[in-house]
Write a protein that binds this DNA or RNA. Structure first.
Lengths: 215, 215
DNA sequence: TGACTATGTCACTATTGAGTGACATAGTCG
DNA sequence: CGACTATGTCACTCAATAGTGACATAGTCA
């Protein structure tokens, strides 16, 4: 007996919309962004692809809807560790370190975000542009909270955090594809701990070296 | 008058092989790895796609041939700055800093390598695996030359260089796709200088902090 | 020159993709 | 119940892809 798409018993626009949006997530998790297409999504949702055009105007619209519903990026709250008061009580370099550490942990726990991240390396579409704008905004918000501007002027805090963020993105994105990177086992939590420790150490060293340039 | 693929006047297997290999590079530069396919490559080469199967066994074989011919990765010589003697005369942290700086510069000057790098984020194929193995080998060779093992045992040099390498890869790979990353303008040489300075500073700070843990 | 093979082209199949128009029916309102 | 619309399915077009078999001819050697 062949598995066949039967006529639906019920007709519910909202339900179908939700099914399609969910299908994007499922497909992303199963096959990555590369397999994304109207045919594949419709198949995954068990619905007809025409609905993608009717309800979302096409695949980009559907993906946008998915993006605005899924919590791709860690929130500022997540990055500060939840308790804003005690976060703000920390010295600047410890705020940066906390943010960096939490960003890495958050990204590690978000496989779909990592998939999107990988995709953004390759293609710049309206969708990835939107997603990236959100990421940039959150990053800016975090940097403002850390008071990075109050660092010693001899320390280029923006460049420092760009490097930290880039490294984290790269390591997390690749962790789904390869095992070893530059001597680190990206499947091993112990090695991730080492990377995390090093991120923190880098921030502390650079900032304190800026404060005491004489050594 | 329609531009049409005419029968070739000469028949030269080696020349055709070279044309096909060159076409891979051209296509990569023009459209990226995503557009890679037998049809596209053959069109670019002005030859028939059958030859790809006959001479290379298929697209992966052709790409391998391309990979082994093109100098994707900076050589160790390039990373050490050419003069091995004076490189080895430097203190360990300066060797690391030099290697990191030269790696960033080399990657910035290799658009095709950046394209491949982006692609490797997304897909793990035999080809990308081969290329990555070479990268890992060169990286290891460089690390051996720097004598990273002779760092203060309190400093996790492998983790440090993994982060530096990851950041460089990410920033260079994305520089072809987006303009701004985390407050840095990836089209502006001045900002690249800031990033380079920060890489060097990170290495110096972390290493010297390891040597003088008391501050 | 004639015969053979390597080289290159063409034509075809089969699959997959995006996108559209026609149709069927569930749900709803009178 | 009858009519209308929203919802969903189907059937198609058009383009592009990977791969293969048949054919044409340039180059070469006897």
């Amino acid at each position: 007996m062949v598995q066949k798409k039967a006529h639906a018993d019920v007709r519910d626009r909202e339900l179908s919309r939700k099914k399609l949006i969910a299908a994007v997530g499922k497909l992303l998790a199963k096959k990555g962004f590369q397999a994304m297409g109207v045919n594949a999504v419709a198949r995954e949702a068990g619905l007809d692809k025409v609905l993608i055009y009717r309800y979302f105007g096409g695949l980009p619209g559907l993906i946008s809807a998915f993006a605005s519903e899924y919590d791709f990026w860690p929130s500022v709250t997540e990055l500060t560790g939840g308790d804003k008061q005690s976060f703000l009580a920390l010295p600047v370099e410890e705020r940066l370190a906390t943010g960096a550490r939490n960003y890495m942990r958050s990204l590690r726990s978000r496989p779909l975000t990592r998939e999107i991240l990988s995709w953004m390396f390759l293609e710049q579409t309206e969708t990835t542009k939107d997603l990236d704008a959100v990421r940039q905004r959150i990053g800016q918000e975090l940097l403002d909270l850390t008071g990075i501007g109050k660092l010693d002027p001899g320390v280029d805090g923006v460049a420092l955090m760009a490097i930290i963020g880039a490294a984290t993105n790269h390591l997390c994105a690749r962790s789904g594809k390869i095992r070893f990177f530059s001597g680190m086992d990206l499947t091993d939590d112990k090695d991730w701990q080492r990377l995390e420790d090093m991120l923190v150490r880098i921030i502390r060293s650079v900032v304190s070296a800026g404060e005491n340039p004489g050594g």
